[in-house]
């Protein structure tokens, strides 16, 4: 944690700082974010895996859903074995933004991923082409998508994909239409397959979508609309 020590108690704090040799302290916005940066650098070095996957249990999910008054989703990143429940915190026209308690967000247009934040290696934005219409109408077809990410130098990289969307099945209770989207990168070798379960109103109720090369696939389940 960044030390939030302020003007009061200056002398004892200073003495404490002086004795704890490797602990840097500061106040009033002076100095460096030393301890926090060291900790982060260590986390960067050894990876968040060192902390182990963070998971919510099915019981907790049920509890949260029962208490919720807002739209709610459950996401699962197989790559990091982490899952989380996100609550809707904003809506900009057709794009809804959901957030975790730890200030990570995911933005979707009718359940289709448009961006992530705070996850590391985020999907900055995406242009989905005709995909939202195809999904809503449960129609097969082809479409283009462009995704934008930041590279290690913090420069925006744009990746274009050609995608084929197909209806691959129906079933379940309540009844959903399963749709598959196969995407191939133009001028590159990234390939991914997304699947969407679409309900009778054309809403995506659950999905398995590619977020970015860094994040990999993410499973999204709409717990509450």
């Amino acid at each position: 944690m960044k030390q939030k020590i302020r003007r009061s108690g200056f002398a004892p704090v200073a003495a404490l700082c002086a004795t704890a040799l490797l602990a840097a302290c500061s106040g009033g916005g002076e100095g460096r974010d030393g301890p926090e940066l060291i900790r982060n650098a260590v986390v960067e070095r050894f990876g968040p895996n060192g902390r182990g996957p963070v998971r919510v249990t099915p019981a907790q999910v049920q509890q949260l859903t029962a208490r919720a008054t807002n739209a709610l989703i459950l996401i699962d990143f197989p790559k990091t074995q982490s899952n989380a429940v996100l609550v809707r915190i904003g809506q900009n026209r057709s794009v809804e933004t959901y957030a975790t308690a730890a200030r990570q967000t995911l933005s979707m247009e009718n359940g289709l991923l448009r961006g992530t934040r705070g996850m590391g290696g985020d999907l900055m934005s995406a242009d989905l082409g005709r995909l939202p219409q195809l999904i809503a109408r449960r129609q097969s077809g082809s479409t283009q998508r462009e995704v934008r990410i930041l590279n290690g130098e913090d420069i925006t990289v744009r990746q274009q994909f050609s995608c084929d969307v197909a209806v691959t099945g129906t079933g379940g209770a309540p009844r959903v239409t399963t749709m598959t989207e196969n995407c191939t990168q133009q001028n590159g070798n990234i390939r991914f397959t997304n699947t969407y379960d679409v309900d009778g109103q054309g809403r995506v109720v659950s999905s398995d979508q590619w977020a970015s090369n860094y994040l990999g696939q993410v499973k999204i389940q709409q717990l509450r609309f």
């Binding site: 070095r45 026209r93 996850m119 930041l150 290690g152 130098e153």
Partner: peptide, 21 residues
Amino acid sequence: TNPKSAATPGGRETAPVPVSV
């Protein structure tokens, strides 16, 4: 090492607040 490859591309800072329309 390579200055072009940060450990986490784009950083892992917390998300910003959404724009309010």
